[in-house]
Simulated assay, not measured.
Amino acid sequence: MGRLAGKVALITGAARGLGEADARTFAREGARVVLTDVDEEAGQAVAADIGGSAWFRHHDVRDEQQWIALMAEIKEREGRLDILVNNAGVVMPSTPETIEADALRFILDVSINGTIWGCKHAIPLMREGGSGSIINLSSITAVQGHARSAAYTAAKGAVDAYSRAVAVYCAQLGLPIRCNSLLPDRIDTPMVRGMAAAVQSFDPALADNAGSKPENVYGEVSDVANLALFLASDESKFINGQSFVIDNTASITKGAVPARIVG
């Protein structure tokens, strides 16, 4: 039997990148997986490729009403929810002096509000089922800072902090629901590659800080998905309210860390 046999997982932002990797990993380990994203064509394709243990719904995480409808459908179709991965996020170049209102609202709304609504509406369904693991995607920027991704840094810092609030809330009420956050550094995904190029154009003089130099090291999506799998499984039943940095010492080491290079 797989490590997630009998469990139902919901993963947002699952059409590509880390969300897709989580969905494929969870399905291989026996979970039934609900994938959501605003990119319907790509999301449907991933779900179809995974097969009968997965289904997809178009879902804008900023909209609380869509969360309510989605949870109702999951309850009707699956009868329970055991795992929520709040993975959806967006990043745009900005500095503390150049943040623009529309971009700021969009970034915060997706990462912060999307995570808050997800936790709010997952907890009751997990409570009914008798167990739950919530995994929120923060970022290494939450602890290290990123001068050219200022709004994203603010959003991911909030996600990390909110994860502890959810964990403490559930623990103090005696609910069998855990909440932890993941803080990856550069992982080889379309979003990270796109961000590196965007920052290079935005401020070439400080491109090194964005990881756009070809010799810089990227992690693999499996580096994050395998940790998410552990946190989603019963193997981590006593791990709650923790922040997991995934960066091969990059946040505590000066310069690039010698390791495998992707691409």
Rank of each mutant, 00 (worst) to 15 (best):
M1Q: 12
M1T: 15
G2W: 02
L10N: 02
I11G: 02
T12W: 01
A15C: 06
G17P: 07
E20W: 03
E20C: 09
A21L: 05
A23I: 02
E29P: 00
G30Q: 08
A31Q: 07
R32G: 02
V34L: 04
T36C: 13
E41G: 08
Q44D: 14
Q44S: 15
A48V: 14
A48F: 09
I50Y: 01
I50P: 01
G52F: 06
S53F: 01
R57A: 11
H59Q: 14
D60G: 12
Q66D: 02
Q66S: 10
I68D: 09
I68P: 05
I68A: 13
M71T: 08
M71R: 10
A72I: 03
K75A: 15
E76H: 14
G79R: 15
R80V: 00
L81Q: 02
L81Y: 06
L84K: 05
L84P: 08
A88M: 03
V90H: 05
V91D: 08
M92W: 06
M92D: 03
P93A: 10
S94H: 05
E97N: 12
E97P: 06
T98P: 00
T98K: 05
I99H: 06
E100Y: 02
A101N: 07
A101D: 10
L104T: 11
L104F: 13
G114F: 02
T115L: 03
W117N: 15
G118E: 04
H121T: 11
I123S: 02
P124M: 13
P124R: 14
L125F: 12
L125E: 00
L125M: 04
G130H: 14
G132N: 13
S133M: 13
I134E: 12
I135K: 12
S138F: 07
T141L: 10
A142V: 01
A142C: 07
V143G: 15
V143M: 11
G145F: 13
A147C: 06
A150M: 06
A151P: 06
A151V: 15
A155E: 07
A158W: 03
V159D: 03
D160F: 04
R164N: 05
A167H: 07
Y169C: 03
C170V: 04
A171R: 04
Q172V: 12
L173W: 10
G174N: 12
P176G: 11
S181W: 05
I187F: 10
D188S: 15
T189A: 09
P190H: 09
M191Q: 06
V192E: 14
G194P: 04
A198C: 04
A210K: 00
A210E: 06
A210P: 06
S212W: 11
K213R: 15
P214A: 03
V217H: 15
V217P: 08
Y218P: 04
G219K: 13
G219Q: 04
V221A: 05
S222H: 09
A225C: 05
A225D: 03
N226L: 10
A228N: 06
S233I: 01
E235R: 11
N240P: 09
G241H: 05
V245P: 00
T249S: 15
S251G: 01
V257C: 10
V257N: 11
A259D: 11
I261G: 11
V262L: 14
G263M: 09
